[in-house]
């Protein structure tokens, strides 16, 4: 992208309450439910465009959740029941009971709809092989590595290929589990490399909340065949203005990326998705400016929230995005 600091979302937004009412109602026909989903997708696309994001999607409004949605359509999985993520937040965990296989492009309709309804650049998020494996009970494959590679080759690669055939130019592989097992970073690296083999598109990897500050990712980054990482930083940063190391302690690891020779792009998380307070445009600006300096090349910096904003109300999420867009503009002016 020609402009500095392009802005983007990571993926999910909270679903509008009217949509949930519609899709859960037994009195509403399937045709009307499809219409409701289309309207909700349109509402999200337009909202993200109006807020000024450069790269958009539909807030993953048609997906149940990032793990359960793909698992529904992959052969070899069987849901076991809900498992706690935190507090009373649960996810529907599956077990692998046979060989995994791709059945159909489960994102085809949503992708086509987004493509038809925006002129902005599109980044389509897909859940990665490593995370799908890590969040499941492996009760079929001999090892986790075998399962991860099977998912990468037999599910992720054909899925991404199909999306690219439909016109996808940027694909984001979501890997929140990607860096959570330091001893398995080789498996993670291979899972991405196998997933994107032979694919002609810009590949982005999103990882977050690993608990180890990406120190385990840094040595692998140049070996993983992707163009951009979208990562979480704001969660660990201070809310003080300024570009000092102390104020920007959440962004220190960028220096480590540089030391390891990473030359790709970083989508920096400038918005904490776990709090309702809105980051000011000035705070966003300072985070961007610090990151540009730490990485050594402002043209490699993209700007996004730490993660999907689905845990926030829509009002909070949109205010955070608005501030993010304004902060990116302030940073551009500063560098003029």
């Amino acid at each position: 992208m020609s402009k500095l600091f392009p802005t983007q979302e990571i993926g999910s937004l909270k679903k509008p309450s009217w949509l949930l009412k519609s899709v859960k109602s037994p009195d509403i026909s399937n045709k009307e439910k499809i219409k409701a989903r289309n309207n909700a997708a349109l509402e999200n696309i337009k909202a993200l465009e109006d807020l000024g994001l450069d790269i958009v999607y539909d807030g993953e409004v048609r997906r149940v959740e990032m793990y359960e949605e793909p698992v529904r359509y992959i052969e070899g999985f069987e849901f076991a029941g809900r498992i706690r993520s935190w507090d009373n937040k649960y996810y529907n965990k599956a077990r692998i009971i046979g060989p995994v296989n791709y059945k159909k492009n489960f994102y085809k309709n949503e992708f086509k709809f987004v493509k038809e309804n925006t002129k902005k650049e599109i980044k389509v998020p897909v859940t990665g092989a490593y995370t799908l494996a890590d969040w499941s009970y492996n009760e079929y494959y001999k090892s986790k590595e075998e399962l991860v590679i099977a998912l990468a080759k037999k599910v992720l690669r054909p899925l991404i290929k199909d999306l690219v055939k439909l016109g996808a130019k940027i694909v984001q592989i979501d890997e929140p589990a990607g860096t959570s097992h330091p001893s398995e970073m080789d498996i993670f690296r291979e899972s991405i490399n196998e997933s994107v083999k032979g694919i002609n598109a810009k590949i982005v990897v999103h990882a977050c909340f690993s608990g180890n500050d990406y120190k385990v990712l840094a040595p692998q980054m140049s070996e993983i065949k992707v163009q951009q990482y979208t990562l979480e930083f704001a969660n660990r940063d201070t809310w003080n203005l300024g570009s000092s190391d102390k104020a920007r302690k959440g962004f220190q690891v960028l220096k480590l990326f540089k030391e390891h020779g990473f030359k790709g792009e970083i989508g920096i998380g400038v918005t904490d998705v776990h709090v309702n307070d809105i980051e000011s445009p000035e705070l966003v600006r300072d985070r961007i400016l610090y990151a540009s300096k730490a990485l050594g090349d402002p043209t490699k910096i993209y700007v996004n929230p730490d993660c999907g904003l689905r845990t926030r109300t829509r009002t909070v999420a949109f205010n955070k995005i608005k501030s993010l867009v304004q902060g990116a503009e302030l940073a551009r002016q500063k560098l003029k």
Partner: peptide, 14 residues
């Protein structure tokens, strides 16, 4: 304080 991963599990504690 903040949510944190329980070691390497996909579950978080506060």
């Amino acid at each position: 304080a903040a949510l944190n991963r329980i070691y390497e599990m996909n579950t978080f504690y506060r």
